[in-house]
Computed example of a mutant assay.
Amino acid sequence: MAGPAPAKLTPVRLWHWRRNPLRRHSDVVEGWIVLAVWMFAILAALSAGAMAAQAVGRSIEVHAVSAVLTDAAARTPADTGGYDGGRVWAAVRWTDADGSVHTGQAKVFPGAPAGTHVTVWATRGDRVVSAPVTGAAATLEAATAGALVAPAAGAAVWGVGRVVRGRLIRRRMAEWDAEWRRVGPRWGNLSGGRG
Rank of each mutant, 00 (worst) to 15 (best):
D96G: 14
G81R: 08
V88N: 00
A122E: 14
A36G: 06
L43I: 15
I60F: 00
H25S: 07
A45F: 04
D96H: 08
A106F: 03
I60L: 14
G86H: 06
T123M: 10
A50K: 02
D71Q: 12
W121H: 14
W94K: 04
V28C: 01
V68A: 10
A78K: 11
V29A: 12
D71W: 00
P110W: 11
V108Q: 02
A45L: 09
M51V: 15
H63I: 10
F40V: 13
H117E: 14
A73P: 02
Y83I: 11
G81Y: 02
V37P: 05
S59F: 04
G111M: 06
S66M: 08
T95F: 12
V28D: 01
A44F: 12
M51L: 15
Q54P: 00
D98Y: 06
G85E: 07
A55R: 13
V120D: 08
R93Q: 13
G125C: 01
T76K: 09
A48T: 15
A73E: 06
F40Q: 07
V128T: 13
D126Y: 15
D79W: 07
G82Q: 08
A41L: 09
P110L: 07
V101E: 07
N20A: 07
A106M: 10
G31K: 03
A73T: 00
V34T: 05
I33S: 06
A45M: 13
L69Y: 01
F109D: 12
V34L: 09
